[in-house]
C-alpha cells in the first residue's frame, strides 16, 4: 500500500495487519524510552488545511516516536491560506523531499487528489477529507474495540496482546449522530464491516445521506429501540456541529434539547447496554448535547484510551507506508503466497 486514503476497499488482511502492527507499536509506548529508530531520516509533513490540533499532535507524536523528521504545514498564516493552490503546495512539498504527507482538508477528495494527480510522489495519509473519510480514526476505533471486546480472556500475562490477528466478527457497533456530514461514520462503516462487525447507524432521518442504502450497515431512526433490542457491544457517538442546528429553515433538527432527548447518550441509556459494552467518541465532545458528562466519564467510556491508541495506530500506518522499498510495495506479488503463512507462523510462534 502506497497511500492510506480510505477504508472503503481496504482488504481484511491489510486491516488486520494495520491493527496488529498498531498493537506492537502500542507495546513500545509503555516503555520508558518510547522512541524507535525506525523512520530515522524520513520526512513527514503534516499538511493541515483545517484546524485540528488533536489530530495533528497525534500524527506528530507518532512520527516523532518513529524518529521521523516532522514538518507542520498549517493553513493558518501560511501561503495556503492566501490562495496558494493545493497543486502548488504539493509541488513545494515534493521539492522539499517529503516522504509522507499527512493531509487534513476541508474538501472531500483532497487526499485522493494529492495521491493521484501526479504532483508529488510521497505516501499520502488521509487525516480527514471533508465529509469523506478519516481512515486512521476508524482504525483506532477498531483497535480500541478489538482490545476491549476480543480475546481479553486469552491474555497470557506476559504482556502479549491476545487479540492480535483477530477480526471483529460478531460484534455489534452502533454509530449515533450526524452521519450525513461525518467522515468518521463513513470510515467506520466500511472498516468495521470488513472486519466482520455488524454496524447500525442511528440518526434522525435528516442526518442520514440519500444513497445510504448501498452502505454495508443497517439504519435506525431510534436510539432507545436500537440499544434495547439490538444490544450493541459498542456505542460510538458522533459530534454534532452546532452550526447544523442553527440554520433556520435549513436546520437538521428542531432544537438541541430535542436532539439530546432522542439521540443523546447518557447514564440511563448506558444502563440498557450489556455489561461489557463500551462507549466511544472521536472527540471533541459536546457534553450535554450528544453525550452527557456522566456517560463520557463513566468507567465504560474508552474515549481517553481512543486518543492514546491514535498514536499507536498512526505509528503503524506511517511504518507500513514508509518502511518498504517503493518498487516492491507497489508491485510485488512474488512473495504473496508465503506472506500469509508467515504471519500465521509469527502468531503461532508466540
Amino acid at each position: 500500500m502506497k497511500h492510506l486514503l480510505t477504508t472503503q476497499g481496504l482488504s481484511k488482511d491489510d486491516a488486520i495487519l494495520l491493527l496488529d502492527t498498531s498493537a506492537q507499536m502500542a507495546a513500545t509506548q509503555s516503555r520508558e524510552n518510547k522512541k524507535l529508530p525506525t523512520l530515522r531520516g524520513r520526512t513527514v509533513v503534516n499538511l493541515f488545511y483545517e484546524d485540528s490540533t488533536r489530530t495533528r499532535i497525534s500524527f506528530e507524536t507518532a512520527a516523532k516516536r518513529l524518529s521521523a523528521d516532522v514538518i507542520n504545514f498549517s493553513a493558518k498564516g501560511s501561503s495556503v491560506s492566501k490562495g496558494e493552490s493545493l497543486k502548488d503546495t504539493a509541488l513545494t512539498l515534493h521539492a522539499m523531499g517529503a516522504d509522507a504527507v499527512v493531509v487534513r482538508h476541508w474538501a472531500s477528495g483532497a487526499a485522493h487528489q494529492l495521491a493521484h494527480a501526479g504532483w508529488l510522489d510521497a505516501a499520502v495519509l488521509n487525516a480527514g477529507d471533508g465529509m469523506h473519510q478519516h481512515p486512521t480514526q476508524a482504525l483506532l476505533d477498531a483497535f480500541t474495540i478489538r482490545r476491549h471486546l476480543v480475546g481479553r480472556v486469552g491474555d497470557d500475562g506476559r504482556g502479549a496482546d491476545a487479540s492480535v490477528g483477530a477480526d471483529l466478527a460478531g460484534l455489534r457497533i452502533a454509530i449515533v449522530g450526524d452521519v450525513l456530514h461525518s467522515r468518521v461514520a463513513r470510515s467506520n462503516v466500511y472498516l468495521l464491516h470488513t472486519l466482520g462487525a455488524e454496524v447500525t447507524l442511528v440518526a434522525p432521518p435528516t442526518l442520514v445521506p440519500v444513497g445510504v442504502e448501498t452502505w454495508p450497515c443497517r439504519v435506525s431512526y431510534h436510539l432507545d429501540e436500537t440499544l434495547e433490542q439490538w444490544q450493541p457491544d459498542a456505542v460510538m457517538m458522533l459530534r454534532v456541529q452546532r452550526e447544523r442546528m442553527s440554520g433556520g429553515s435549513g436546520a437538521f433538527f428542531p432544537s438541541p434539547m430535542e436532539y439530546s432527548r432522542k439521540f443523546g447518550f447518557d447514564a440511563r441509556r448506558l444502563a440498557v447496554l450489556p455489561d461489557h459494552a463500551i462507549v466511544m467518541h472521536p472527540g471533541p465532545m459536546n457534553r450535554g448535547l450528544e453525550i452527557s458528562a456522566a456517560a463520557a466519564d463513566h468507567p465504560r467510556s474508552v474515549i481517553v484510551e481512543q486518543v492514546a491508541n491514535g498514536v499507536a495506530v498512526r505509528m503503524a500506518a506511517l511504518y507500513l507506508l514508509l518502511s518498504g522499498d517503493i518498487a516492491s510495495t507497489n508491485s510485488s506479488t512474488s512473495s504473496t503466497s508465503t506472506s500469509t503463512s508467515s504471519s500465521t507462523d509469527e502468531r503461532t510462534a508466540l
Binding site: L17, D20, T21, M25, R158, G159, Y319, S332, S342, E346
Partner: peptide, 22 residues
C-alpha cells in the same frame, strides 16, 4: 524489525511482538 538497517531496501515487514518473561 523496527531496528533493522535495511527497512528501505526490502518489502515492508510485519512487526512482530516483543514479550519479556512475565
Amino acid at each position: 524489525t523496527m531496528y533493522r538497517d535495511d527497512l528501505r531496501r526490502q518489502p515492508t515487514r510485519a512487526v512482530g511482538q516483543t514479550v519479556l518473561p512475565g
